[in-house]
Computed example of a mutant assay.
Amino acid sequence: MILNRAFFAQDTNTVSIHLIGKLLCFHNFQGIITETESYIGTKDPACHAARGMTQRTKIMFGPAGFSYVYFIYGKYYCLNIVTETLNFPAATLIRGIQLIHPPYTYVNGPGKLCQLLGIDLSHNAIDITLSKTLHIKDIGCQLAYTSTPRIGISKGLDKMWRYVIKDKDCIKRILPKVTDMAGL
């Protein structure tokens, strides 16, 4: 089942936590989400919208369930999903996945993830609740996770808003079940 707008309209940390174990689908790629990070509102100094709405961040002020893709370090794209309510800028960064189709590549790091999948600025502002190209499915997979401070930022390091699976080898153990649920 493709996740709907109500799922993404929840509190950002709730979305980030519950995305662990969901299936990210992009064209022919399918991977279990293993790592996320939350960026929440204008009071979060690490959030791109901390200084208000700009041309780049206006998607974050829109409805939940849209992709927010940006370019960093002159080299990498990063995929986020807008969360919460209209005019409240928040998003979940997808930091890692375990590919199951094509099989078995563990990808950690949002830039590497987008590079491998081919996600770029042309994939910004996609309604992932309706898209056939980019969406996230609930396949009934729940994985144990831990929370840590966010990484790759210089502000807001006191927030324990990075969520990562505790045991990446657990995916190998559940892979037959997951591939059956995903229809692969």
Score class of each variant (00 low, 15 high):
161 W>C: 08
152 G>K: 09
114 C>E: 02
14 T>S: 14
81 I>F: 11
98 Q>P: 01
38 S>G: 13
14 T>C: 08
155 K>T: 14
162 R>P: 03
6 A>R: 14
112 K>S: 05
134 L>H: 07
87 N>S: 10
173 R>M: 12
153 I>N: 05
180 D>F: 12
9 A>L: 03
39 Y>D: 06
180 D>C: 10
98 Q>G: 01
102 P>S: 06
15 V>T: 04
38 S>L: 09
81 I>T: 09
6 A>P: 04
21 G>L: 05
48 H>L: 08
56 R>P: 02
94 I>V: 10
112 K>R: 13
136 I>T: 10
109 G>R: 01
53 M>D: 00
131 S>R: 04
68 Y>C: 08
182 A>P: 08
176 P>Y: 05
154 S>C: 13
137 K>A: 13
11 D>I: 07
69 V>M: 06
133 T>Y: 05
124 N>W: 01
135 H>R: 04
139 I>P: 05
171 I>M: 07
105 T>E: 15
20 I>E: 03
90 A>E: 00
120 D>E: 03
119 I>K: 04
76 Y>T: 10
111 G>L: 03
5 R>I: 13
129 T>Y: 14
85 T>P: 05
53 M>H: 01
169 D>K: 13
126 I>V: 13
167 D>W: 12
139 I>C: 11
45 P>H: 03
71 F>V: 07
20 I>F: 02
48 H>M: 05
11 D>M: 09
126 I>G: 02
56 R>S: 06
29 F>T: 01
79 L>M: 07
71 F>D: 04
162 R>Y: 07
28 N>C: 05
76 Y>H: 15
115 Q>I: 02
104 Y>T: 14
84 E>T: 11
38 S>I: 09
29 F>K: 06
113 L>I: 07
37 E>P: 04
123 H>A: 06
59 I>T: 15
124 N>V: 00
68 Y>W: 04
72 I>T: 09
174 I>P: 01
51 R>I: 01
3 L>W: 11
118 G>F: 00
171 I>C: 06
15 V>G: 00
83 T>D: 06
101 H>R: 11
76 Y>I: 09
71 F>L: 06
176 P>M: 05
163 Y>I: 12
12 T>Q: 10
174 I>G: 02
158 D>E: 15
20 I>S: 05
11 D>H: 12
151 I>N: 11
43 K>T: 14
86 L>Q: 06
51 R>A: 06
156 G>R: 09
65 G>D: 07
158 D>R: 14
53 M>K: 11
175 L>K: 08
13 N>V: 12
127 D>Y: 02
114 C>Y: 00
153 I>K: 04
180 D>L: 15
165 I>H: 02
119 I>V: 11
180 D>R: 14
178 V>C: 03
109 G>E: 03
52 G>V: 08
80 N>D: 07
108 N>H: 11
1 M>L: 14
114 C>T: 02
6 A>H: 14
86 L>K: 08
6 A>K: 15
160 M>E: 15
144 A>S: 15
101 H>S: 12
19 L>M: 11
180 D>V: 14
23 L>N: 01
83 T>Y: 09
99 L>P: 00
54 T>I: 10
150 R>T: 10
70 Y>P: 15
146 T>Y: 09
81 I>V: 15
30 Q>D: 01
184 L>V: 15
2 I>P: 15
21 G>A: 03
29 F>S: 04
125 A>V: 11
153 I>Q: 04
167 D>Y: 14
7 F>D: 10
157 L>M: 10
61 F>A: 10
169 D>R: 12
183 G>Y: 00
119 I>Q: 02
129 T>N: 12
18 H>P: 00
